[in-house]
Design a protein around this nucleic acid. Structure first.
Lengths: 203, 203
DNA sequence: CGATTTTCTGACTCGTCAGTCATTATGGCC
DNA sequence: GGCCATAATGACTGACGAGTCAGAAAATCG
């Protein structure tokens, strides 16, 4: 029994949930929230619509789960990679590197991630949690810049605006890479962005 | 007859069209494309649904017209303001200034504008024209940077990536200002961004 | 191998809306 | 006013898709 402390039921449930989320990611990425149907998700996951509803109460919940799963992973990964290197230039570089690389490995997820930003300012409707996570990560990044400022590596300036701008350099570059081929490699883009950002903020 | 060379019909038609677009902008901004209904748009414009269909063939066309109208205006305005000043730092500053200011004056439009970016990589579906316009403006901006590079004001680097990054600083800052109060004034943000970008790219 | 419980299924319901069109209002003109 | 043309209306239709649930299938067990 002590094996993972999981009942058979829990294992099966986790398995199905993962199966559904994988399918959902694919379908939502391709069609967007509104044009994706539960039947398509079920089909992509090789099960029936009824089964999907056994594991998720609504379409929105499936979407949310797919979105938040990736967003949390990305946030954690980014924080880890930044923490793992010394010096603020290297941290900024790690920031870009992690995100652009994660993009290449999770294109489906980023279709969803980026389109969600389109809705982030709407009535709250679709996803307060996502918005909160975004703002949380942004604030964390801002604190990091503040440390850099106090350490004298980064020049004094309006940190919230700066933090947001750097975040958005990454986001925009990712979008551009999603739309189509860019003629630049990930590494090139990482260097270019790091350079731009670092020259922009360093003392 | 020579008055504007317009028939009565044309005048009325232009009037109704503008009326509908104004209402559409408001409703689409508030609800997003999918959750906005034609009845709501008609009501907001003080006319009936049938009338809307006399001037636009479909919901998507109303949306497109609202989107493209603002996007074109913004593109033209930005280009003009940049052309009107001397020196590349000033041009970059004008770029940020124009956009952030236009945001304050056209919040409804920007709700639509930004959410459209969420769809920009999808099946093409919603708006090839918008995508094309975006890329056109981006390329134009890139050319401007190239001039700056050739003039020795801007250091050599990967221009497409740089241009995109600067565009996205503006876009992201606008989004942040749309989501909620930021504690910074437009002018502060303009200075901060100009500084960041200019230090990032200048020689 | 039944009996019983758990899991799955997909045809069905029911609300919603884009788009239509027969009917009504408006206004210009003699 | 009476006639016609043009503009506007809003009840209606048809499609679609989220969510349901009665029953089928599969797993578990004695």
């Amino acid at each position: 029994m002590a094996v993972q402390g999981k009942t058979k039921h829990e294992v099966l449930s986790a398995f199905r949930t993962a199966e559904i989320l994988g399918a959902a990611r694919k379908v939502f990425a391709e069609k967007g929230f509104n044009d994706a149907t539960m039947d398509q998700i079920a089909e992509a996951g090789g099960l029936s619509k009824g089964t999907v509803y056994l594991y998720f109460p609504s379409k929105r919940d499936v979407y949310l789960a797919a979105l938040m799963h990736g967003a949390q992973e990305l946030g954690i990964l980014t924080a880890q990679r930044m923490a793992a290197v010394e010096g603020f230039r290297a941290k900024i570089r790690a920031f870009f590197q992690t995100r652009l690389q994660y993009l290449e490995e999770n294109r489906d997820f980023f279709q969803i991630y980026h389109s969600e930003f389109g809705n982030i300012m709407h009535p709250v409707a679709l996803c307060q949690d996502f918005r909160d996570l975004y703002l949380k990560n942004l604030v964390a990044f801002e604190s990091l810049l503040k440390e850099g400022m106090e350490a004298g590596e980064i020049r004094a300036s309006n940190l919230p605006t700066i933090a947001s701008a750097i975040y958005d350099m990454a986001k925009g570059t990712m979008m551009r890479r999603l739309i189509g081929p860019t003629g630049t490699s990930v590494d090139e883009d990482v260097e270019t962005l790091t350079d731009l950002a670092w020259k922009g903020i360093s003392n």
